[in-house]
Amino acid sequence: MSAPKIQLTGVKKAFGEQIVLDGVDYALPAGESLVVIGGSGSGKSVLLKCILGILKPDAGSIRIDGVETAGARGEAREAVLKKIGMLFQGSALFDSLPVWENVAFRLIQGQGMERKEAKEVALGKLAQVGLGPPVAELYPAELSGGMQKRVALARAIASDPEIIFFDEPTTGLDPIMADVINDLVVASVKKLGATTISITHDMASARKIATKIAMIYGGKFIWTGDAKNIDRSGNAHVDQFIHGRAEGPIQMAVRRP
């Protein structure tokens, strides 16, 4: 059996006294699409930022293609980042750059590609997510939320990464646009053959884009399995979450009337 593409072992992260990740273990094989589900504040985004190297875990190991990346710096970190694309929750497009330059950003700044050539690639990626050349010259503030997500997806796949992270890809979109984005995510990932990790609250999205699902609760993965088995998890926490019930083992910190 080949080594996992991404391997997490005992990953811990706390902010002061608040323990957010309390020993996360998981091995994700290449080509799989993992969706991490869990409530607000359960540590999904922190986990993603630890894998990306934006946050440094307090303990544990994060390996990508067998190479330790937790706390990696300089060229080692560069080498890992070159394999990664990311779609941020709020799209995180650069306001000061037109759409095509956002998409081509890594090609120009990171890989030193000529602007003209990079623009051609960007236009191709924009076409892949259903956006035509006129959109390429607009600025992010001139786009709707759905179009911004498409541009962010085009930017995430622009350098043909081996690994893509999706942070709440459908948050803030209407159900139809959310489904369009889900289809684009699935199509893009399939075309690239990439390994992906997504975090979402949206179960419709999770069911569509995942091959594997993990539920995070109390800083740990309390259930992991194939996406097709999510409805037969046998885990009360998972059942409560996927059916969106207020009653159950997960108690939200809200004051009852």
């Binding site: 930022k49 934006i54 980042l81 990664i84 929750q89 995180a92 497009l93 990171g110």
Partner: peptide, 10 residues
């Protein structure tokens, strides 16, 4: 998160 995006984009 644009600064995080810069980091991820090498």
């Amino acid at each position: 998160e644009q600064i995080d995006a810069l980091t991820v984009l090498s």
